[in-house]
């Protein structure tokens, strides 16, 4: 494997890792709220959260590109805050990927929290546990499998994204050049051997993490049945 390809792979893993960590933190309160609220605003928020599932990545990327532009409010705010523009930067990739992979984190967590039901949380409250105490003492440990699913799906989905990152990140080696973009470039230049190598890495990785995830979930389901 060539040095540029290795650097693309490493950058991709870094991006996926950072995005997964951020998503676990952001998706937790959102999924908790969605699982428990009786608010009429719930379907609106649910639809917004699920939007990246159905929207063409180029559409999402296009809007993000506009928002990241220093001429826009958000772009100007970021420039004033950090001294750098968001377009064609790693930070821009992180923000775009967090939005793009949000449903893959929120939906498993929401299902996991909803499956716990009200009773367990109310019982913990009646035993004297406050909200934070209840979350770390009961809700979080009972949602372990949901967190595993959410983290694996977010990580794997971020690894494979192409359209959004191409729109907002471009193809700057070592900065925004991710593995999926490197593969595209290899194919365009008819370097099929290198494209094969990189594609195989992604394929094997994606299959392996999904296999591990399903094995763990099946085992847990069997334990619950016994």
């Amino acid at each position: 494997m060539t040095a540029p390809d290795l650097s693309a792979l490493w950058l991709t893993l870094q991006l996926a890792g950072v995005v997964t960590l951020i998503l676990m933190v952001i998706a937790t309160p959102l999924a908790l709220w969605l699982a428990r609220t009786r608010s009429p605003a719930r379907p609106v928020i649910e639809a917004l959260t699920a939007l990246p599932l159905v929207l063409p990545p180029t559409v999402l990327g296009f809007y993000l590109l506009l928002a990241f532009n220093p001429a826009s409010g958000f772009g100007r705010f970021w420039l004033a805050l950090t001294g750098e523009t968001l377009t064609f930067s790693f930070a821009g990739l992180v923000i775009a990927s967090v939005i793009y992979s949000l449903p893959f984190a929120v939906q498993p967590l929401q299902a996991g929290f909803a499956a716990q039901g009200r009773g367990v949380d109310e019982t913990a409250a009646s035993l004297g546990a406050g909200p934070v105490d209840r979350f770390f003492g009961v809700t979080l440990p009972l949602a372990r499998r949901a967190y595993l699913t959410a983290a694996v799906l977010s990580f794997a989905h971020t690894l494979g994204e192409f359209g959004v990152v191409l729109m907002v990140g471009g193809n700057i080696p070592g900065k925004t050049r991710l593995i999926s973009i490197a593969i595209y470039e290899r194919v365009e230049t008819l370097d099929y051997a290198a494209a094969h190598g990189l594609s195989a890495i992604l394929l094997i990785f994606a299959f392996s993490v999904l296999l591990v995830l399903y094995i763990v979930n099946n085992r847990a389901a069997e334990r619950a049945l016994r």
Binding site: V120, T123, A125, L127
Partner: peptide
């Protein structure tokens, strides 16, 4: 006053034990 500050213990129809 929220439930966890009332000093009231509730036993529900299903035992709602903590499975972990």
């Amino acid at each position: 006053v929220p439930p966890y500050r009332r000093g009231v213990a509730t036993v529900f129809q299903s035992p709602t034990l903590f499975a972990h």
